[in-house]
Write a protein that binds this DNA or RNA. Sequence first.
DNA 1: GCTCTGAATTCTGTATGCAATTTGGTTTTC
DNA 2: GAAAACCAAATTGCATACAGAATTCAGAGC
Lengths: 227, 227
Amino acid sequence: MASAADLPSGTPHRIERQSLHEAILTRLRDMIIEGDLTPGTRINEGAIGAQFGVSRTPLREAIKYLASEGLVELVPSRGAVVKKFTAKEVRDMLDVVRTLEEHAAVSACAVATDEAVAGIRALHDEMVAAYEHGERRTYYKLNQEIHTRLVELADNAALSDVHAMLQTRLKRIRYVGHEGEEKWAKAVGEHVEMIEALEARDADRLVDVVHRHLTKAWERVKDSLET
Amino acid sequence: MASAADLPSGTPHRIERQSLHEAILTRLRDMIIEGDLTPGTRINEGAIGAQFGVSRTPLREAIKYLASEGLVELVPSRGAVVKKFTAKEVRDMLDVVRTLEEHAAVSACAVATDEAVAGIRALHDEMVAAYEHGERRTYYKLNQEIHTRLVELADNAALSDVHAMLQTRLKRIRYVGHEGEEKWAKAVGEHVEMIEALEARDADRLVDVVHRHLTKAWERVKDSLET
DNA sequence: GCTCTGAATTCTGTATGCAATTTGGTTTTC
DNA sequence: GAAAACCAAATTGCATACAGAATTCAGAGC
């Protein structure tokens, strides 16, 4: 740790050993997204706290944060429950995500630097490689990352914020939503169109592709919701 | 309170006496919005806790919730600081709000019930009355409420969520942004157009008005930000 | 056998206590 | 006189403690 003290005083990033409630937050969120805590489950503070080896205090703080993110619901005197989303709610979320990404697409074509676009191209190529090797998990992660990056290109913090929030709520659902081979192929095709439109800074075309891509995203997941 | 127990078992709203951290949350948020806690201020848990007459535990929980809402920033080992927004951030937020309200406008014209529209008309008339009496505070509150209701007409929970979040972040800024007489008059004029387009279910016109209204909203507040 | 009742248990909500880090001011040093 | 070093007070972060509400389960009554 001595090296940190040696750095010049105005260093951009500090050491910041993350606090416990922050670590718990990440872990809890992952548990919800990956399905360890299924929707409708009550979060037992004692049990989770024991499992994590922490007291209930920072755990409760993390839960409050998750509540504001919309991943859990706070029920008075009954603690927190993992939020269950109806098919309509998922559709509505995708609707908003689509609107946000379309908006981002327009801004991105206007302000994105070549380096930033090249960064997304790199991720895209990686993703296509993952697709060709049938690595769904890697594909999924890169896919998410590409959409996040596209929004970040717009250089609008508020836009990134709300997009990330909805993306987080949807992660669990889209994570489960494994599409069949031919649907998967089409999704990849749309992504190819996206990156091409972006590289050409063709806003109209990019908006169009994003629109189609997210409209289909709903079709891809909706079947897994009708239980 | 006995009447509650007598209600049939599946009653829509329970008694729900709100918990302390929830009450604190509302109070803290109001303090930030109304300027009692100015941007950049560190939130001293001991002091605020004493002022509210509560311990630090529920207070800290409320702070975590506010952090996720984006009203405060969590600095490791140094607590929470009231978030300071740059002019660009405000502009970006208004940009997203505009996009969201335009989207809401389209949906609203398609699915809104006559009663819901009538409800907004009532608020609108009240707001105009407040304007004519020069009651800026009442006007401001009704104005906010109308925009919230318009978004709610779209019947999209995610849309309402993210809109409310940005609206909350902007409240303090727009609260301060007192416009001059003629700008105020124009804002009211835009609102008249909005309610008329809505009552006519004229989506194109409504989108257009909303677009102009929120573009001007930026012009109305931007001067107060260049300090 | 089923429902209702009530005590025992579990769990949440809040307060308090303690260790570790930060902060502000004073002294020391060059 | 300015900067570095240090010490004391204040403050955050987390754990523990305790009261009150909710849940569970056993037994009584029908």
